[in-house]
Design a protein around this nucleic acid. Structure first.
Lengths: 368, 368
DNA sequence: GGTACCATTTTGATCGTTCAACTCAGGTAG
DNA sequence: CTACCTGAGTTGAACGATCAAAATGGTACC
C-alpha cells in the first residue's frame, strides 16, 4: 500500500498554503496565473487527487449515484438495462461521478437499500428503473427528500413531483407501422402485452394510432399475452389463422417478435419474405436472429446522458422543478421487414384467405 | 433533504459520550449490558447510521470495491459476467460493502480508472475479470500496492503474486464427456477455440484427458475456430461430414453449441435424439433453446462469495500470502443430451458412415 | 490506608478537505 | 489623510467518525 500525497504535501512543495492548492482545483480564478501554474505543476508532479472521503465529509457530496441491477434476462427488458447501466457509468464518469450498483428482488428490498445508503450518506442520488403502476419507490424517495430520477414515466400518476426520462414507445411502434406501410403492408398486426402495464399500453397506442392515421382497419389484428417467445409464437399463430391474415407484425418486444418468426415458419411461410416482423428494443439477439430482426431501438446512451444531467442538476440544487424528458426511438431495419409480395399487394384491401398460401406445413417438426 | 442524525445527537439523547455510541456498534463487549441496550435503543429510535465519509476518513476504508462492467454480449461470456456482477453485489452487501461499477473498452482504459480510484481513495479493492495471457493489469496493481482478486487464473504466469478464484473448466468438459459416455457415446467431439486462450486451452484439456481416460480415440473429433454460433455451426458441419461422424459434441461455449444444433439439423439429424450436444456456461439461452441445451454451469454465486471473502481478508490485512481457489462446475443435463441410438450403439467402435442416415435434407431451408 | 487493578466511560487528537473569516498590500475615492 | 475596496493568499474551524490515552469508580490485596 503506497503512501499517496495529501493536499498538505502539495502545499508545502509548491510553497503555498493548503487552501491555495484547494483553490487551484476548485476556484482557479482566485489565483494569480503564475501561482496557479506552479501549483498545478506540483499537483501533477505528485499525482495528487483529493481524498474522496475527506471531501465528502466536508462538502456532503459523495460523487456517487446508485442504481439497481436487474437480471439481464429480466422479463421484457431484453438487454436494455444492461446497455443503460453501461451508458450510465460512462455518463456519470465523464462528470466525475461513480455508479454504485446493488441488486434487489423486489421494490421493497430496493427501498431497504435506498434507506441504508441514505442513512450512511453513501450516495448523492438514485436512478430508478422499471417504473410501473402503483410504484411505491418514487413516493418513498420524495418523502425522504432524496434526489432521484426515473428511467420511465410515473405511470398512472398525473403530475409527479419527480424528474424522469423516458423513451416514447408510442412513437416507436407508430414508426414501425409507417415503416411497414411504406413497404406496402396494410394488414399490420400488433403483438402486445395485457392492458395495464405502462410501457405496454404506450406501445399499443402507437400502433393503434398509426393504423388509424393510415386508415387501416385494426379488427382481428390485435393479440395480447404475457411477454415471451412462446406467447409471441402462439399469438402470431392465432392471428395467422384468423380472417385478417396479417402480412406484418409489430411487436411489444424482441422476444415476441422471435416467437412470431417461428409461428410464421410454422405456417409454411418465410419470415422476411412472405411476412414481415418488427420487434422492440433491438436486443443482442435481433441482429443475429434468422432472419435478422428489424427492431425499434431505444436511444439508451441519450437516456443515460439525460438521466445523469437531470439528476446532477438536482443534486447540485440548480433546478427545483422536476424535469420531464421524452426521447424518440428509432426503427432499425433488417431482413425481417420486407416489401409485401406482389400477389398480396395486388389482391389488396383486407380480403383474405388464399392470398398467402399455407404451403406444406412443417408443423410436425414443431410438434415434437 | 431531511436532516439525519449524527453520533453526537445519539450520544446526547442516550446520555452518554460519542465514543460510547461508537463502541456500541463497533465493540459492544466494552459496554455494560444495560448501557449497551439503552444506546442501541436510541440508535434504533433515531435510525442512526454512521456517516460513510467520516468513517472512511478516519479508518481509511471505504467499504466499496470496484468492478469493471463488460458488455453482456461480450464475446464468449454468455451472461456469466452478468451473473457474476449480481452475485458480487449480493456477496459484498452481506458484508457491508458496496460495488462500484465502471466501463472500459480495453485494459489500459481500465487501468486509468484504477489509477483514478486509487488516488482518490475511492475504493478498497478491485475485482478483475477476463484475465488473459499477457494481462498487464495484475502487474500494474501489484506495483501500486493495490488490493485485488482476479476471477480467472493468471494464465501464463507461474507463481502469481496475487489472489485469484476460478472455475475448473477442464473438470467441466471432462464431466461433460463422462456424462455423454454414460449415455453410451464414444465418438465425442470437441468444438473449441484456437490455442492460446487460457480458458480455451483449459476446457480443451478436460475433453482431451477424459477421452484418453475412457480409452476413446480423439482423431478427427477436434475442431477449433473463433467462438460464435456461426463458427460452431461450420465446425460441427465439418466433423459430421468427416469419417469419425461424432454422436456427441462437447463445446467451448453455448454459442458454439447452438451452432452445433443447427449443423446437426442441417444434416437431417435430430439434435437431442440422433446427436447430443453439451454447451458451456449455461447461458440464458440454454434452457430455452430447441432442444433445450445441456450445459456446464459455473458456480458463479460461489465464485462471487469467494472473491469477496478473499478480497476483504486481504483488505483487512488478515492474510498476506495470495489465495488460489478453484471451484468445480456442474453439468446441467437437458434434452440436448440423449442416449446413443440403438443401431449406432450396436455398430459400436469407430466404424462410420451410414450408421446415422442423412435423412431428406432440409438444407434448402437453411440455405436461404 | 495506600496501591494496584479491572471494567467502564469520557476526553482530546486526528483523518484530509473545504468554508468562512481574516491578513496584507496596493489602489482609489472622498 | 483617512476610509474603503479589491485581489491574493493565509489561518482557524468544521465536517463526523474512530483511535489512543486519560479519567472514573469500585474492588481486592498487602
Amino acid at each position: 500500500m503506497k503512501k499517496r500525497p495529501t493536499i498538505e504535501m502539495v502545499a508545502e512543495r509548491a510553497g503555498v498554503s493548503r487552501q491555495t492548492v484547494s483553490n487551484a482545483a476548485n476556484a482557479p480564478h482566485r489565483l494569480r496565473p503564475e501561482t496557479l501554474e506552479r501549483v498545478l505543476a506540483t499537483i501533477d508532479e505528485l499525482g495528487y487527487r483529493p481524498s474522496q472521503a475527506a471531501r465528502s465529509l466536508r462538502t456532503r457530496s459523495t460523487q456517487v449515484i446508485a442504481c439497481r441491477l436487474l437480471p439481464s434476462n429480466y422479463a421484457g427488458t431484453s438487454g436494455v438495462l444492461d446497455r443503460l447501466l453501461h451508458a450510465l457509468c460512462d455518463a456519470a464518469r465523464s462528470r466525475g461521478y461513480g455508479v454504485l450498483t446493488f441488486s434487489a428482488t423486489n421494490d421493497d428490498e430496493e427501498i431497504e437499500v435506498f434507506d441504508d445508503l441514505l442513512r450512511r450518506h453513501a450516495v448523492d442520488g438514485f436512478v430508478l428503473t422499471n417504473t410501473h403502476h402503483g410504484d411505491v419507490r418514487p413516493t418513498w424517495l420524495v418523502e425522504q427528500g432524496a434526489q432521484f430520477v426515473a428511467f420511465g414515466r410515473p405511470w398512472g400518476v398525473e403530475r409527479a413531483a419527480h424528474s424522469w426520462v423516458d423513451v416514447d414507445g408510442a412513437t416507436g411502434t407508430a414508426d414501425a407501422v409507417y415503416h411497414l406501410s411504406e413497404l406496402g403492408h396494410r394488414r399490420i398486426a400488433y403483438l402486445g402485452v395485457p392492458e395495464g402495464s405502462g410501457t405496454g399500453d404506450d406501445r399499443y397506442h402507437g400502433w393503434q394510432q398509426a393504423m388509424q392515421e393510415l386508415g387501416f382497419p385494426t379488427k382481428g389484428l390485435l393479440a395480447r399475452a404475457e411477454d415471451g417467445m412462446t406467447s409471441g409464437r402462439s399469438l402470431a399463430d392465432q392471428l395467422l389463422l384468423g380472417v385478417e391474415q396479417p402480412t406484418g407484425f409489430v411487436c411489444f418486444s424482441d422476444s415476441m417478435a422471435l416467437g412470431a418468426l417461428r409461428a410464421i415458419e410454422d405456417h409454411g411461410l418465410v419470415p422476411g419474405a412472405d411476412v414481415s416482423v418488427v420487434g422492440f428494443d433491438d436486443s443482442p439477439i435481433a441482429p443475429v436472429a434468422r432472419p435478422r430482426l428489424s427492431s425499434v431501438r431505444q436511444p439508451i446512451e441519450g437516456v443515460a446522458h439525460k438521466l445523469v444531467e437531470v439528476l446532477l442538476s438536482e443534486v447540485s440544487g440548480a433546478s427545483h422543478k422536476p424535469s420531464r424528458v421524452l426521447l424518440p426511438p428509432r426503427v432499425v431495419t433488417r431482413e425481417s421487414s420486407c416489401a409485401v409480395r406482389q400477389l398480396t399487394a395486388l389482391s389488396g384491401d383486407g380480403t383474405t384467405g388464399k392470398t398467402l398460401p399455407l404451403s406444406t406445413s412443417n408443423r410436425k417438426d414443431q410438434a415434437k
